[in-house]
């Protein structure tokens, strides 16, 4: 899968143009990916894209970056993956950096300070909203509710990375024990919550 420079640049440029629409979650990118990659360039089929997006949510990291990297890899191997990742990340890097630099230049301005008093509170609301949204798919039974409830106080004492590992291990053990006891665990609430059907509600990654 050796890719020539022209193809690599095309991959880079395609994702560079799609990237800035990832406002409020990577899933905003999906229709554009299909339009560019499937309809225009005919690099992959819609089925392949659906597979890639489902897989992208299982791998740690942002859905937008992961799916771009996957697609780049399919088209042009490792160099294609790099070109896609660079293309999808560069515009948002520059935009967020510009915002950051402006913030530092004017954050002493009394108007901006006043705006941020209110914005900080809104951020708390946005995080609460994110928690509610993900809880809807994460909390499917008593066990998952217990894991969530135990996780919050634990975070006051243990490093979050350790808590994440504990969560994954608890998931594996809990299902093992339930199987031994003869319970059948419903891992998804219903068919509509299947990530391939409704990606927006999976892992809250759309937030």
């Amino acid at each position: 899968m050796k890719a020539d420079t022209r193809l690599l640049f095309q991959i880079f440029w395609t994702f560079f143009r799609i990237s800035p629409v990832t406002f409020g979650g990577g899933f905003a990118m999906v229709p554009l990916i299909i339009k560019e990659i499937v309809d225009k360039k005919k690099w992959l089929t819609t089925e392949e894209i659906t597979d890639v997006i489902a897989l992208s949510q299982t791998v740690p990291g942002a859905v937008a970056v992961n799916s771009a990297t996957f697609i780049g890899h399919r088209i042009g191997g490792i160099r294609g993956a790099l070109a896609a990742m660079f293309g999808v990340s560069l515009p948002t890097f520059l935009i967020v950096l510009a915002f950051g630099i402006s913030y530092f230049h004017i954050h002493d301005n009394p108007k901006l300070e006043a705006a941020f008093i209110s914005i900080r509170v809104t951020i708390v609301a946005i995080i609460v909203y994110a928690a509610i949204k993900i809880a809807k798919t994460a909390i499917t039974d008593k066990t998952t509710f217990f894991i969530m409830a135990a996780g919050v106080p634990l975070l006051f004492f243990i490093h979050p990375i350790l808590v994440i590992f504990l969560g994954a291990i608890t998931g594996i053990i809990a299902i093992y024990i339930k199987k031994k006891l003869g319970y059948d665990t419903e891992m998804k609430k219903n068919k509509e919550d299947d990530p391939t059907n409704n990606p927006d509600y999976y892992m809250g990654a759309g937030i």
């Binding site: 993900i134 509710f145 969530m148 996780g151 994440i164 969560g167 994954a168 608890t170 998931g171 299902i175």
Partner: peptide
């Protein structure tokens, strides 16, 4: 195995977000 992992990971991710909201 990955599905089982996520069975525990998703509620923990919820705890992480609740914790972040509490801190803020």
């Amino acid at each position: 195995v990955v599905e089982r992992m996520f069975y525990g990971l998703k509620p923990i991710v919820t705890s992480l977000i609740i914790f972040a909201a509490l801190k803020f």
